[in-house]
């Protein structure tokens, strides 16, 4: 798809120019840099903190796994990065830097331009990744044409290409309604949809939790291979340390709105310090 490639290169050039213009940023800024992010929830005029100053960095091509039990604030953090927090939540402090820019300062419309284009998102609830009464292809087409100047036909060619890349029978899936596909197929179609604009960041919120183990592994394999090809950064959210240990380069363990431990996957596996991480590791079934 030449249009998309062109845009990609101009984008890169622009980023490089910006970097060159600023003496402070000597190297390429990391794709995502969250620092001291604090999120609160409003309950009858009372503000209750949910996330207490979370910080992490994901460079290009790396995978950071955010692991924790439900309610630890990992999904909220992800939706804050995406800019789609529910109305009762607010950010009281901190920065979310996307390729060096603090997106919290951006107007809504500009942030919308990021979603789908520069930040892809994969949901746990794959049934609802696509609107149930519109064909998968139509929705991929719609997404492509929302971000790029393409004709319907060009967009279709592009979407089919990506459906093939995730190992699906492209033509059939393209013209199928979401309910006509199996869970694994649908999740892979969702990945194709999220990756087809070659975003620099992919957020996967428990992408395999609702799938059976084999489909889940297949989905993660597809993710890994696409990441290798496009060089995007991945924020992988999971409650299951066993899943992410071999998939992520860095792991951040979250509990009650704090990151209690952040280290490389190897270090976490063998030299973790925090007792909660130890518990999580022990909860992992061993196959001997």
């Amino acid at each position: 798809m030449p249009q998309i490639m062109d845009k990609e290169t101009t984008h890169m050039e622009k980023a490089q120019q910006e970097n060159a213009a600023s003496p402070l940023v000597a190297v390429e800024a990391p794709v995502l840099e969250v620092s001291q992010l604090q999120i609160f929830t409003r309950q009858e005029k009372q503000q209750r903190p949910l996330v207490h100053g979370v910080s992490f960095v994901i460079p290009r091509g790396e995978t950071l796994a955010l692991v924790g039990e439900s309610g630890s604030g990992k999904s909220v953090t992800a939706s804050a990065v995406l800019g789609l927090m529910s109305g009762s939540l607010g950010i009281s402090n901190g920065e979310i830097r996307f390729r060096g820019d603090n997106v919290l300062d951006w107007p809504n419309k500009k942030r919308r331009g990021l979603r789908g284009r520069e930040i892809g998102f994969i949901f746990q609830n794959y049934q609802e990744s696509f609107t149930p009464f519109i064909t998968v292809g139509k929705q991929m087409n719609e997404t492509l044409r929302s971000h790029e100047k393409l004709t319907r036909r060009q967009a279709k060619v592009h979407a089919l290409e990506w459906l093939e890349q995730v190992g699906l029978p492209a033509e059939r899936v393209y013209s199928s309604y979401p309910f006509q596909l199996s869970g694994g197929q649908l999740q892979r179609a969702a990945i194709a949809g999220a990756m087809m604009l070659q975003p620099s960041l992919l957020i996967a919120d428990e992408p395999t939790t609702a799938l059976d183990v084999l489909s889940g592994e297949k989905v993660l394999d597809v993710l890994a291979s696409l990441q290798k090809r496009t060089g995007c950064a991945v924020l992988l959210i999971s409650h299951d340390l066993r899943h992410v240990v071999k998939r992520a380069s860095t792991i951040a363990v979250m509990k009650d709105g704090h990151i209690v431990e952040l280290d490389t996957a190897e270090h976490i596996l063998y030299h973790c310090h925090h007792e909660y991480t130890q518990q999580l590791l022990n909860a992992r079934p061993y196959i001997t």
Partner: peptide, 26 residues
């Protein structure tokens, strides 16, 4: 309030499009 609307927002569709093309139909 359905999840598929959140998914449509995550794909970066314009709010108007989401409303007229996805939410209204349901």
């Amino acid at each position: 309030s359905q999840d598929y609307i959140k998914a449509a927002r995550a794909r970066g569709l314009a709010e108007r499009r989401i409303l007229m093309g996805h939410a209204l139909r349901a």
